[in-house]
Design a protein around this nucleic acid. Structure first.
Length: 984
RNA sequence: GCUGAAGUGGUGGAAUUGGUAGACACGUUGGACUUAAAAUCCAAUGGCCAUUAUGGCCGUGCGGGUUCAAGUCCCGCCUUCAGUACCA
């Protein structure tokens, strides 16, 4: 019987689906284990071989845990809202829901053919109203919450209102907007309803506010900070500008400290935690208030170096700082205005690009030093960022390089306040070796003490206090797009109102066009049925808007990360229509035990999800304030591109391609191509583009052999075989223009390509589709090979050629169980060698899986299979447990052979084999005998021997004497069971 | 610049606490089978030198160090990749 992998795989995939083999129950006597993949965006291009890498790893782990007696939750779903479907809709008019559904179908087919053990009964799609109902629900909860710094958690807004009614806001210690005014209980109670709502918005965890946003004109939407990479949009690379807009924001900054501290409690990769720490950007220092001279204004700054307060020689405001227009003197006004105009024009990217250029303008105004009362000139400069701290800095040129450069550039004095430090060349930023001088009461103090003293003195003056600052900004939550969750929000007199949760979901309305309206409103502005009737509690025709009972609905939609910030909990109880999940379900599954996904989500999805989880924890909805106990980043699989060299001569009609070593030679020897006798036949057969006398001379002249005369061109990797040879005919037929191309071959008449590793992408023609791999080699081969490529976390190139290794392993494995006459497994008792092979395999595979070292397991299987083949093992007692070991990796072949062995239940229900040390106990050891640390020969010795006996045996050996050549060994190191080293 | 990860044959990679470097594969070469090819099987395969077998020297990015013994530990560099970037 042969190994017909296509039949076997189809058979078992069908079996698993029909029998719901991997359906997880929300109760069990078994311990629970939750394995989750970051869920995919179903793109139109489908999967390439890089995508399933993490899914295969998590699937192996999930299957392994089932064998180990766990009740495993291993769900999958789709992050199905998103830009590409919308862009496609704009171009074609096709409703994004339709394209999305089609793409999901493709994804599902591709995932199914790889044989994953997902519990598909729990599938969720973020674009499904029954799912986004709960996304909207969480939004309402956030709206109805504020962050109490005293209890250090989110609380219901009604508690805050009670406080306002009883005592105003003077004693409220909340995370809120900076510009909240102070009011008494009486004042509060006399405020109009609008005024009260306005104030409450400044406290809510999701709030509507005029904020400076990252506007991307090309995409027609705002972007969150994590959606901008190097000053351009992550998707599409479009420029981004700053713009003031009224937008929903999430008060994630309230959770900055807890998000930071929480990192200590979770088993995530260090690099990922470090990214989050940087993103949160905690810095400890002080806020200092400077009075502006001759003007009733104050400038607040944040500094990490209050100890250097006497080194301040100027102040710098961001050009966008609100005080700039107020304090600028008439004489300086023209210059200041021009500067502000110039900086506003520059995109974020430009500003980042030239960090070197120093620019700034004096405002004409002066601040007053809090201690010396000396005047300090106030400048503006774009090296101060409006979005960080207060948008103003106290500039201490002697202690900060940027301030130093700025001062040098504009000839501002640089007072030195550091004892024994030369600052003539650069600023001195070293805290540890700081001793302060020229600083009044700070003289002679070291950094730590000076900081404390400075803060103490500032507090006494009422002009400062210790403060901790975070780089983490509140996250903008509105997008001017169609294909996202609608907000459950309508507007009364311009104030946002939440729709009662019992009327959710608010479904996306139909629109004619997916573009913004002519008046610049988001696409939902095109909807004609998009108003909220407070009497019928339903979405009604826009014509009915009377602002008495029928009101306009919010036109923005939620961002991509809304739907992905809680899905891991929803999987626990995905069909529940009454609650986001039942308490039974969440208390049973608790949190994700293992989360596998890409590191690109470090500061987006993975931070927002932690934020929402902490919020839900505050509400008492979830038992843990971290959603994923352990997280592993899988590396990326790269493509191995193939290049052919095209001679860029325009002398001939036909393109000319050079095989790799021909090219190498031509470049190395700099021999004109046309001159070579070897190729003269080829050149004679070419059609010259223009007839000219002495055509031969033409190409000789034209064929300089520098690299620039040859263009490397991507050839589709499907034309390349394992030996890097090009299928020339396939290549010729690939493109019309190559039909008559000429090829200069290797000496052995093959045509070889150059290979290079690049990111897998359509445009590089190095994308490998898993469908074809499954057809040619089977899903089990694909799964094994993806693991065999190398460590999970590493970036590694794909090369289809190597898959024959794992494929022939599976064939060998099959032959261990079957020959031409069918099953050959017997009840024969296992030999000692058989048992040894089995048990060392059990040990290694178990250790490997626990350490997520899946690549080494595959080698271990190969070794076991080779050994058992040599041993001619047919013993069921060996071959049966071996199948269970392999089944997480290659589940189809394992199921088939398991079935052949007479089992009628899925192998996934089998127990993992128990490792028995006794089979590995050896009586002898082949000792490596080293001389001065270099291994010279080996010696078989009994393990019963003690140190002295081993030494004696080794020294008595002929070869030892030969090595020593009469020298007396100075020292003999014997490590029993390991090694012998002779020094001498 | 800062932070993180990594550098081992022609290639992917292995080497669990310092203890036989290169497991397992791919590729290559040679051979068997075949009319031929594919498939399969066998052998060799880090480099250099020697060859009559036994061998010898070098070798884990570079330079030092610790140690009986270093891919592994320590110090100083170089390179690559990723993230981040005027964060006061």
């Amino acid at each position: 019987m042969k190994y017909h992998f296509n039949e076997i795989e189809a058979k078992w995939q069908k079996y698993w689906a029909e029998n719901q083999t991997f359906k997880a129950e929300n109760y069990s006597d078994k311990p629970k284990y939750y394995v989750l993949d970051m869920f995919p965006y179903p793109s139109g291009a489908g999967l390439h071989v890089g995508h399933p890498l993490g899914y295969i790893a998590s699937d192996i782990y999930a299957r392994y845990k089932r064998h180990k007696g766990f009740n495993v939750l291993h769900p999958q779903g789709y992050d199905s809202f998103g830009l590409p479907a919308e862009q496609y809709a704009i171009q074609t008019g096709q409703h994004p829901a339709i394209t999305t559904a089609e793409n999901i179908k493709t994804y599902r087919r591709q995932l199914d053919q790889i044989g994953f053990s997902f519990d598909w009964s729990r599938e969720v799609r973020t674009s499904d109203p029954s799912y986004y109902k709960w996304t909207q629900w969480i939004f309402i909860q956030l709206f109805n919450s504020w962050y109490n710094n005293n209890s250090d958690k989110a609380e219901n807004i009604s508690e805050l209102i009670k406080i306002f009614e009883a005592e105003g806001n003077t004693n409220v210690n909340a995370e809120c907007d900076d510009d909240v005014e102070v009011f008494t209980a009486d004042e509060w109670n006399n405020y109009s309803s609008e005024k009260q709502q306005e104030i409450l918005l400044k406290y809510r965890l999701t709030y509507l506010a005029e904020t400076e946003v990252n506007w991307c004109p090309a995409l027609g939407t705002v972007l969150a900070n994590d959606e901008i990479v190097n000053g351009v949009s992550e998707r599409g690379g479009h420029p981004v500008i700053k713009k003031k807009m009224t937008q929903w924001s999430m008060r994630i900054s309230a959770y900055a400290e807890r998000l930071l501290q929480g990192l200590e409690t979770i088993d995530w990769t260090d690099s990922l935690k470090e990214s989050q720490r940087n993103w949160i950007g905690k810095s400890v220092g002080a806020s200092v208030t400077f009075n502006v001279k001759d003007y009733d204004a104050k400038i607040d700054v944040f500094t990490t170096r209050p100890d250097t307060i006497f080194g301040v020689s100027f102040m710098t405001l961001a050009p966008e700082h609100e005080l700039v227009s107020k304090i600028t003197t008439p004489e300086q006004k023209a210059e200041v205005d021009a500067y502000i105009k110039a900086t506003a024009k520059r995109s974020e990217r430009d500003r980042m690009a030239d960090v070197k250029t120093i620019s700034g303008v004096f405002t004409g105004a002066y601040a007053e030093h809090p201690f010396t009362k000396e005047p300090i000139p106030i400048w503006i400069g774009d090296y101060v960022l409006a979005g960080y701290g207060t948008g103003a800095v106290m500039s201490v040129p002697c202690g900060d390089q940027r301030d130093y450069d700025f001062a040098k550039h504009f000839n501002i004095p640089i007072p030195n306040i550091f004892e024994g430090v030369d600052i003539s060349e650069e600023a001195f930023a070293d805290k540890d070796n700081t001793v302060i001088t020229n600083s009044d009461f700070l003289n002679g103090l070291k950094y730590k003490k000076a900081v404390k003293t400075a803060i103490y003195e500032l507090e006494k003056l009422g002009q400062g206090e210790g403060k901790t600052n975070y780089r983490l900004r509140d996250a903008v939550f509105s997008r001017q797009r169609y294909w996202g969750e609608p907000f459950p929000v309508y507007y009364v007199n311009g104030m946002p109102q939440m729709i009662d949760a019992k009327h959710l979901p608010i479904e996306l309305p139909e629109v004619e066009k997916y573009l913004p309206t002519e008046t610049g409103e988001p696409p939902l502005g095109n909807a004609t049925v998009w108003a909220w009737c407070t009497e019928t509690n339903s979405v009604v025709d826009n014509d009915k808007i009377d602002n008495i009972t029928v009101f306009p609905l919010e036109l923005n939609t939620m961002p991509g990360w809304a739907g992905s910030s809680q899905y891991f909990n929803r999987y626990m109880d995905p069909q529940n229509d009454e609650e986001i999940f039942s308490q039974e379900a969440i208390n049973y599954w608790q949190q994700v035990d293992l989360y596998i996904g890409g590191s690109e989500h470090a500061t987006g999805h993975l931070l927002y999800s932690r934020f929402w989880q902490k919020f839900m924890f505050d509400l008492g909805l979830v038992p843990y304030d971290e959603f994923a106990k352990k997280l592993i980043n899988q590396g990326m699989i790269l493509g191995t591109s193939a290049f052919v060299y095209r001679w860029s001569s325009n002398a001939f009609e036909e393109p000319i391609f050079l095989s790799k070593s021909v090219y190498d030679k031509v470049i190395l020897e700099e021999k004109p191509l046309g001159h070579s006798d070897k190729f003269s036949n080829i050149f004679k057969s070419l059609t010259p583009k223009q007839t000219m006398e002495g055509g031969e001379a033409f190409f000789v002249e034209d064929s300089e052999t520098t690299e620039k005369n040859f263009t490397p061109i991507h050839a589709d990797v499907s034309f390349i075989n394992a030996s890097d040879e090009l299928d020339v005919e396939a290549f010729k037929n690939w493109r019309e223009e190559y039909k008559n191309a000429k090829f200069i071959y290797e000496d052995d008449s093959t045509f070889k390509v150059k290979r290079d590793v690049e990111k897998m992408s359509k445009s590089k023609y190095n994308v490998v589709n898993p469908d074809q791999i499954c057809i040619d080699y089977g899903a089990d081969s694909l799964r094994l090979y993806e693991m065999f490529l190398g460590p999970l976390e590493q970036y590694k190139p794909w090369n289809t050629a190597g898959i024959t290794g794992v494929h022939s392993f599976l064939k060998k494995l099959w032959k261990l169980y079957n020959d031409d006459n069918g099953l050959k497994v017997t009840d024969a008792a296992p030999t000692k060698d058989n048992l040894k092979t089995l048990h060392k395999t059990i040990k290694k595979v178990e250790e490997d899986i626990e350490n997520f070292s899946f690549n080494t397991s595959v080698s271990t299987f190969m070794i076991a299979c080779n050994e058992l083949t040599v041993q001619k093992c047919t013993s069921k007692q060996i071959l049966e447990p071996l199948l269970v070991l392999i089944s997480p990796y290659a589940p189809h072949i394992a199921e088939e052979l398991w079935n052949q062995l007479g089992h009628n239940k899925s192998i996934s229900t089998a127990d993992f084999p128990k490792f028995d040390e006794s089979h590995l106990v050896e009586s002898t050891k082949n000792y490596p005998i080293s001389f001065n640390g270099k291994m010279r020969f080996t010696m078989e010795l009994s393990l019963d021997l003690n140190k002295e006996e081993i030494e004696a045996a080794v020294l008595a050996n002929e070869k030892t004497k030969e090595q020593l050549q009469g020298r007396e060994p100075k020292k003999v190191i014997v490590v029993p069971g390991k090694i012998v080293n002779i020094v001498g």
